[in-house]
Design a protein around this nucleic acid. Structure first.
Lengths: 181, 181
DNA sequence: CAGAATATGTCAATATGGTTGACCTAAATA
DNA sequence: TATTTAGGTCAACCATATTGACATATTCTG
């Protein structure tokens, strides 16, 4: 049980008068709520993944491959911002266990284009459904416009130089269904 | 450069007609934006921490101790949801290097109450200021009410059983300043 | 008061997911 | 032909987490 002996529960304060040059008061609530919300958000898939002996790294790879059939390894590295050695380990396991296949690029035969198999797509969708349950429960608690508000807030939180990438990736509800059986 | 050869950029779709019993389409945009936003959000402190040979684990510990002066070790474990062995390592480093002190509880002498030192508070505030810069830039891009909208969305994303804890912790803008010199 | 429960710390082994650096092949390109 | 690019791989290492066992001091309870 957590009881931190809180002296008062006043709400978010207006910007206080500060000495010139001093930092404004940190936005504690958003800082901490992001921590708690993200922890619970990734917690759902974690539990499911553990039963496959997979971890978060596998989830991220499978997710983006499922969402972007035929993507290049280099694209995945750029999205995940990890090294190819780090990707290599989890990607190899996903390929060996039949969740992802790699196909030689038609134009450029050096490329190993990535596709989720039927099995891979099934797992990716199962994990996405878990997270969607949480999100739709949350959005349903709030008023209309909550989805759009959340979307805009999250976009604004992304580094400017990463935004167009993120928006390109997420703006596609016309999801191609190209998993390999 | 990421170019996934996107065929169309249509916006979020209305809930499509589905076969009965089928899952609704996953809420891809929020799922992915949370990943990108959180990655950049924790990226700012990561860079600063690296110069102290500290990592994210140190940040989390220092943050909550700074925000909750005199908290018990057990409270910290409950917030972070890690084991005491895992906490032990980073906490020891923070204590050894003078960022945190532990004081015997006045009522219960088994407790080791945690306080940030002046040095610890300075680092915690520096990291919080980095994250606050990002948040206020984001909120400023959006309309009025963005702070409250974001707050409510994030709260709604937290597990119901964790919400009261999160709200108690974050609702205190009346931050006690109790760091030990 | 004796014994149980609690708060905290510690040792050891192990897993996951990340890093750097070096080096390799095959294919495309200048 | 020479260089660059896409991708893979080996090896060492690091940070952060886990489980399980056990130790100490203190408080609580019958």
């Amino acid at each position: 049980m957590v009881d931190l002996n809180i002296s008062a529960l006043q709400s978010r304060q207006a910007p206080a008068d500060r000495e010139p040059g001093a930092q404004p008061e940190p936005i504690w609530d958003i800082i901490e709520l992001l921590f708690f919300a993200y922890r619970d958000f990734v917690g759902d898939p974690d539990d499911a993944l553990a039963r496959f002996n997979f971890g978060r790294a596998h989830h991220r790879v499978l997710h983006f491959v499922n969402r972007n059939p035929g993507m290049k390894v280099a694209d995945l590295l750029d999205i995940l911002k990890i090294t190819k050695q780090s990707l290599g380990r989890v990607l190899k396991q996903l390929v060996d266990q039949g969740y992802i296949v790699q196909k030689e690029g038609a134009n450029d035969r050096r490329q190993r284009l990535l596709y989720a198999t039927g099995k891979g797509e099934a797992l990716a969708m199962r994990l996405a459904n878990l997270q969607t349950e949480r999100i739709s429960r949350a959005l349903a608690e709030l008023g209309p416009g909550a989805h759009e508000n959340a979307r805009q807030f999250l976009i604004a939180m992304i580094n400017v130089e990463n935004r167009s990438q993120a928006m390109k990736l997420t703006a596609r509800s016309d999801q191609k269904r190209k998993s390999i059986p």
